[in-house]
């Protein structure tokens, strides 16, 4: 299985190497010509341009097309190759958009933090928990303005647009706690610069345990709540309002 990091490394390397080669050759050739044909004070040949002539083209078109064709081939083949990898990224490593038992996390951005919704109503804010080595599908949206969710280390990114759900995936291989690994990539207001969140990658068993604990805690809450149903409703409303206000400053 290729992770997003693997895909990026492959393709970036190839682009970088070819891009550098092409860049160096073209720039060097440019400078070489500029130097080689520098003015040496030799008298002009008869064909030199004159003031007030109606513009026409110069000689040398054949070479022009040869170079053009060559560079076009390079560019087009690069992009064709990139396209193959794009198809892989679009469908995911399992060859299907989130499969039956894929791990799905809904991500919601708001000014200026991130909420994560896991299965069974488990929720966190400011920290994202994922199992190591498994494909994590994310559904990204926003509660207020346009944000962009990205984890550079994992080479994953998706726009968080109000009312839209942007889906993509990544595989975190190394367990660990990555502080501020999640960043916002679209200007979203005064706190945009600091709109980061932590990524916690757990071993799959640990992740299940964590999820289980959260779920249990959630159930306890619910039991408490059932005793005073009316209160809950009020609470929820109050919470929503709070959220709204949070989004505005």
């Amino acid at each position: 299985m290729q992770t997003r990091v693997d895909v990026f490394e492959d393709i970036f390397m190839i682009f970088l190497v070819l891009g550098t080669i092409v860049g160096v050759i073209v720039v060097a050739y440019t400078l070489y010509n500029a130097y080689k044909y520098r003015d040496t004070g030799e008298p002009a040949d008869e064909d030199a341009p004159t003031l007030g002539e109606l513009p026409t083209g110069g000689q040398g078109g054949k070479k022009l097309f040869l170079s053009f064709a060559l560079s076009a081939v390079v560019v087009i083949s690069l992009v064709a190759y990139a396209y193959v990898l794009l198809l892989y990224v679009e469908t995911g490593p399992e060859g299907e958009n989130p499969g039956e038992d894929a791990i799905e996390i809904d991500v919601e951005g708001w000014a200026f933090d991130w909420d994560f919704h896991y299965e069974d109503g488990v929720e966190t804010t400011g920290t994202m928990y994922v199992p190591a080595g498994e494909t994590v599908w994310i559904n990204v949206t926003s509660d207020d303005v346009w944000h962009s969710f990205g984890i550079s280390d994992q080479r994953v990114k998706a726009d968080a647009i109000p009312g839209e759900y942007d889906q993509t995936w990544f595989v975190a291989e190394e367990p660990g706690e990555y502080e501020d690994a999640i960043e916002c990539f679209e200007l979203c207001g005064s706190g945009h610069s600091g709109m980061t969140a932590d990524l916690v990658v757990l071993e799959p068993e640990e992740y299940e345990e964590w999820l289980e604990e959260e779920r249990a805690a959630l159930e306890e809450d619910e039991e408490d709540d059932e005793e005073s149903e009316e209160d809950t409703e009020n609470d929820e409303e109050a919470e929503e309002e709070e959220d709204d206000e949070g989004g505005e400053d």
């Binding site: 513009p55 083209g57 078109g61 022009l64």
Partner: peptide, 9 residues
């Protein structure tokens, strides 16, 4: 001191 190569193109 030269006209543009491939001007038309």
């Amino acid at each position: 001191g030269r006209r543009l190569v491939g001007r038309k193109w």
